[in-house]
């Protein structure tokens, strides 16, 4: 049987961005941090994980376990850091 395929357009295609540069500017290295230089702690406060939920325990169980372990770790540092919040994209 021949493969049947119908394509309208490719939404995943890397769109060619045309960027308008308004002015020349530099950034001060004393503040902020490039994303590629973020530490695990930084990523736990602002990051994401791609989860395969098709195998294993229910996501709720593991998210709570993860929160508990991470929360305990944060408290262990002795700082007044917020407990790690985790949310799920309801895909």
């Amino acid at each position: 049987m021949t493969v049947l395929r119908f394509v309208y357009s490719d939404p995943f295609r890397e769109r060619e961005r045309e960027t308008v540069r308004v002015r020349e500017a530099t950034t001060d290295e004393r503040y902020g941090k490039r994303p590629e230089e973020r530490s695990v702690e930084d990523l736990l406060r602002f990051g994401y994980i791609v989860v395969d939920k098709h195998s294993g325990p229910t996501s709720q169980d593991v998210v709570s376990s993860v929160r508990r372990v991470l929360g305990a770790e944060e408290a262990g540092h002795g700082g007044t850091l917020d407990a790690v919040r985790a949310g799920e994209i309801p895909l």
């Binding site: 994980i49 791609v50 195998s55 325990p57 593991v62 372990v69």
Partner: peptide, 28 residues
């Protein structure tokens, strides 16, 4: 993607001082 079990294991390793695995799973 990473399974929930793998994520949990990586978090456990991190809590025991080894952050490499968790670092490789976390994304910007």
């Amino acid at each position: 993607s990473h399974s929930l079990l793998e994520i949990y294991a990586a978090v456990r390793a991190y809590s025991e001082g080894d952050e490499g695995w968790l670092k490789s799973i976390l994304r910007n």
